[in-house]
């Protein structure tokens, strides 16, 4: 099937008997939609085409599992446009599993990706929610936000299925992601200051791509900060202090520029580590945030500050 041709779009998925208490379901009807008024440009739309299975979803969405199909329809009447179908196995108010079948149409370009309303299927289509999908960073899947019935958006992660892959109509349960009330809130980055105080050394320093870039160095750093890989950090250290207000001073070398950030409001829960990022001093303005995970002496995370994202790996040297 040509990727840009509208294929038969109602795909019957054989459900494993008894797996979710229903016999059959589909990813929804995606055929017959007219070209939308606003067509997502091909360079944005093309990477979304594919079949997907839900692998992670925010607990608040009450979704057990699901599948999605997104296609490009040329319809013979204009530029190709995105149209999709989404099948969700959802927990009802009494905890029972229900199937939700939605059409995703029309897609529109939004900041960072695309968005489409969840339309009910049938003669009278009504909008039951919204799905926002971020432009994929690679071929493996998609990330986005799902909102239904006026509920707050919940994070959702899809894994791309290969041409010959199938879940046979019984997608595996998705990992339930923690909601905001389970965010780290214990002060510091561990049960005792002795666990986390001290010097941290950057372990994944990379060659500075802007080193030989002359006048282009700043735009390279900025652009990489918006790209999927973040800004390559060529060096860095962090000193974490405990006490009444645990904090850290972080020095990063990136793009030929040394930047000092001050981390305050350090908090933890399990292996999660978070902090506010301030500029200038520990009492300076909040310019970003840090989110990471601790595993032994290794701390891996992402720092976003002043519109630039850095993926960081540290080793605690004590």
């Amino acid at each position: 099937m040509s990727g840009r041709r509208l294929a038969p779009l109602v795909v019957l998925l054989a459900l494993a008997a008894g797996a979710v208490g229903v016999a059959r379901a589909t990813t929804g009807n995606t055929a017959g939609f007219p070209p939308p008024k606003q067509v997502v440009p091909a360079e944005i739309a093309d990477p979304f085409e594919g079949r997907y299975v839900v692998t992670e979803v925010g607990r608040g969405a009450n979704v057990r599992s699901g599948e999605m199909k997104i296609e490009l329809s040329d319809n013979g009447k204009g530029p190709a446009f995105l149209v999709g179908g989404l099948q969700l196995y959802e927990y009802g108010s009494a905890g029972q599993l229900e199937i939700g079948l939605f059409s995703l149409y029309p897609f529109s370009a939004v900041s960072g990706g695309v968005s489409a309303p969840l339309l009910s299927q049938g003669v009278l289509q009504t909008t039951l929610g919204q799905l926002k999908l971020l432009s994929p960073r690679d071929e493996t899947g998609l990330r986005g936000e799902l909102s239904q019935h006026g509920s707050p958006p919940a994070p959702i992660v899809f894994k791309r299925l290969g041409e010959n892959q199938s879940v046979n109509g019984s997608p595996p349960p998705a990992k339930q992601l923690k909601e905001t009330d389970e965010e780290p809130d214990a002060p510091g980055w561990g049960a005792s200051a002795a666990e986390y105080e001290g010097e941290y050394e950057l372990t994944d320093a990379a060659p500075d791509p802007a080193k030989e870039a002359a006048i282009l160095a700043p735009v390279i750093v900025v652009a990489q900060g918006f790209g999927p890989g973040g800004v390559p950090v060529s060096g860095g250290t962090m000193t974490v202090s405990g006490g009444d207000s645990p904090s850290a001073e972080l020095i990063l070398e990136a793009g030929g520029v040394s930047s000092t950030y001050f981390l305050t409001d350090l908090a933890w829960r399990g292996d999660q580590r978070v902090a506010k990022v301030r500029g200038g001093s520990s009492s300076g303005p909040v310019v970003g945030s840090f989110e990471g995970r601790q595993s032994g002496d290794a701390l891996k995370g992402t720092l976003e500050a002043e519109g630039v994202r850095y993926d960081l790996s540290f080793a605690h040297r004590g």
Partner: peptide, 13 residues
């Protein structure tokens, strides 16, 4: 809003 391409073009620069 193709930020993936923005990142790739940074590497080209």
């Amino acid at each position: 809003h193709n930020l993936g391409a923005v990142g790739e073009l940074a590497s080209q620069l």
